[in-house]
């Protein structure tokens, strides 16, 4: 406990990096998810194939391997990335690939006759998507999406391995330094404390999710719908 208090500046900094990493990643991952997800449901063959390849590549390679590949590979194409940027890029691309699948699942869960009947009313394609398809597709994917957010926040700890001074890296430093200087290893205590911090962040996100989900259930129940489970399951299955 004393170690944590003594090193509060280190841990505080680490937490700040973690939050910075998380916030940037969540924003970029969301943007990529929507963009690529919508790309993959267009009728343009080129766009859907490009989206498919991107999603498959990032979903089929372990996140850590992608992280190393981008961090060490970027300089080779004349684009040296500092550890933080490399981590943001990798986590965003990985989150975007998984998020795109959720978005695609959400859109695919909308029956074709919704589009057809909107078209029959003389609406333009963008109006059909904006007023009819998107509201139905996007609401049910919010819960699986916040699930992805939790996963992304946890994954920021991987950035320690390429040297981003985030929370987990700081814990490692404190453990190593204490071991060398004091002659004993506080690994269990320090990593235990870190575990609690990650747990609290994720638990807070999850609590937010369930509240959101309950609010949506409530709203849907007001409309007399049985439950949103089916749409959500379909969106989740694609993850």
């Amino acid at each position: 406990m004393q170690l944590i208090v003594e090193n509060y500046i280190l841990f505080g900094n680490g937490l700040a990096w973690t939050f910075g990493l998380a916030v940037l990643t969540l924003v970029f991952a969301t943007v990529i998810s929507l963009f690529v997800g919508i790309m993959s449901i267009t009728r343009n063959r080129l766009l859907t194939v490009a989206a498919r390849i991107y999603v498959e590549v990032f979903r089929d390679i372990p996140l850590l391997v992608s992280l190393f590949f981008i961090y060490f590979g970027a300089p080779l194409i004349g684009l040296p990335l500092d550890p933080f940027s490399a981590a943001v890029v990798t986590l965003s691309l990985w989150g975007g690939a998984n998020g795109a699948e959720i978005v695609r699942g959400g859109f695919n869960a909308i029956p074709e006759h919704q589009r057809t009947s909107a078209a029959a009313l003389g609406l333009k394609p963008w109006q059909i998507y904006w007023y009819v398809i998107a509201p139905q597709a996007l609401l049910p994917i919010i819960p699986p999406f916040t699930g992805l957010f939790t996963l992304l926040v946890q994954s920021t700890s991987l950035a320690a391995l390429i040297g981003v001074p985030e929370l987990f890296r700081m814990a490692q430093i404190v453990v190593e330094r204490t071991t060398i200087m004091e002659g004993y290893s506080p690994a269990f205590t320090i990593f235990g404390a870190i575990l609690v911090v990650y747990y609290l962040i994720s638990a807070a996100l999850n609590a937010l999710t369930s509240r959101l989900e309950r609010a949506m259930q409530h709203r849907l129940k007001a409309r007399g719908a049985a439950d949103m489970g089916s749409v959500r399951r379909q969106a989740e299955e694609s993850v």
């Binding site: 006759h113 009947s117 139905q136």
Partner: peptide, 13 residues
């Protein structure tokens, strides 16, 4: 020319 379908296809939202 309006159209009505078999599966009423109202917008549920």
């Amino acid at each position: 020319v309006g159209m009505v379908f078999q599966d009423c296809s109202l917008f549920p939202h």
